[in-house]
Each structure stands twice: as structure tokens, then as C-alpha cells.
Amino acid sequence: MYHLYHFLSAVYGEQEEPLLGCHVLNISPQHGEYCDTSAYVLSSKLIPQLLKAAKSTPLYKEETSQLGSSYDESRSSYSPQLSAGDVSSRTEFRWLTGSVRKSAGINPVYLNIRYSHDEVSVMRWLRSPIQSPSPFIFVHLPQFSFRIWSQMCREMWRKSRNLQI
């Protein structure tokens, strides 16, 4: 959290600006670029824009059966039936951070170089005698056991905290 806060403050200042920062992927032919679901930063100022754009941004017909969506004949489009817990669906998330984001005119802030998806880079930073901030804001390591993952998180937190003091 320290690193994320300092990074965003240095880049955008202390004022809350509309921001969608994430690891941007481009693997969805339907939705184009969208945010990886592992972590993202969304300022509250963007929520009204996204909600407004969501009302007029259709899902593709083949996706609606997966999402429990309904066809709106008056708009000739499919709309997802979203509730607070539904956005965890990868398809909905691609739709929201891809198609809806684009319809709302929101450009994502690419945090791709601040993500780590491999333990070697993280361990190299942890074991380094050089006392520098982590080059990563987000670390996504799904293949680890909980014990190894929680130990690594504690070590990253401890080193980051010690660097901030």
C-alpha cells in the first residue's frame, strides 16, 4: 500500500483525479483492451461515468447465456443483470473494464511494468542487500501454496515498511 500510494501521489498529485489504473490486457476480441482481474485502482469519480456507459453498452449475444443477461427489445441489446457480487465474473469484468470503459471515454493507466507474475523477481528484490523500494506495486502468484504465499507477503510487507520508516 505504501508503494501504491507514493507512486500514484507522485504521478497524479494529492488531488483525486479520475483514474483507472491496472495491468492492461488485450486478449479479448469482443472487448479489446481490458484490466486484469488480479488488481486495479478505480477512483470513485469514475463510477457514475461507468454506470451511465454500462446502460448503453451491449454484451455480445454469445456472452449473455453465461451471465444471466436479458435482451432489451427497446434498445436491441443485451444487458447484464449486475449486483455487487457479480463483477467477479471474468466476462463481466472484461465487459466493464473493456467495452464500457471505452464507451465512457476512459483511458486506463497502464501499470503493467508495476506487476509481477513471477516469484523469481520478487525473491530477488526480497534478498537484495540494496535497500530500494519494490519495483512492483502488485504481485500475482497464484501457483503458490497458502503457507509460502503468506510468508512471502509478510516479507514484502516487512521490507516495504522498513524502507518507509
Rank of each mutant, 00 (worst) to 15 (best):
P18R: 03
G32A: 00
I130P: 01
N162Q: 10
L111G: 08
N112C: 09
V100W: 01
F146N: 13
A10D: 15
E16F: 09
D118Q: 06
N162C: 10
G32P: 08
Q15D: 15
P135M: 01
E63M: 12
F93E: 13
C22H: 02
N162I: 07
V122S: 00
Q131R: 12
S69Q: 09
W95D: 00
Q81V: 07
L42P: 03
S70I: 13
Q164M: 11
I130G: 06
H117S: 07
F136T: 02
N107K: 15
L46A: 08
F138C: 15
I130F: 09
Y60N: 12
P18G: 13
S56M: 04
K52L: 04
D86S: 09
I106R: 10
E73P: 15
P18D: 12
H23K: 12
L50C: 11
D36P: 02
A53L: 10
R127D: 13
L25K: 15
I47W: 01
S99H: 03
I148H: 05
S56I: 13
L25I: 11
A10G: 14
V24F: 02
S99N: 05
H117E: 05
F138H: 13
W149D: 01
S38R: 11
H31N: 14
S145F: 06
P80K: 07
R124A: 11
S69F: 03
E119M: 06
L111P: 01
S9K: 15
R161N: 04
F93N: 09
Y71S: 01
H31P: 01
T97R: 02
Y110F: 09
A39V: 01
S150N: 08
E92D: 02
A39H: 14
P18F: 02
M1F: 02
Y40K: 08
C153S: 01
G32R: 05
S77F: 00
K45V: 04
S132W: 07
I137N: 00
K55L: 14
C35L: 07
L96S: 00
C22R: 11
K55W: 09
R127G: 03
R147C: 03
E63K: 03
E33L: 07
R94G: 11
A104D: 06
N112D: 14
L46C: 06
I113F: 03
E119F: 02
Y2P: 04
Q151V: 00
E14D: 14
L50W: 06
T64D: 10
S28D: 15
G105K: 00
S160N: 07
Q151R: 04
S121M: 03
S121D: 05
E73W: 11
D86H: 12
S103W: 04
S132F: 12
P142H: 04
W125S: 06
L96Y: 05
L25N: 08
R94N: 05
S128F: 04
I106N: 05
E63A: 10
E119Q: 11
K159R: 15
R161T: 12
L82P: 02
S76N: 15
H117W: 09
L8P: 11
P108N: 06
H23M: 14
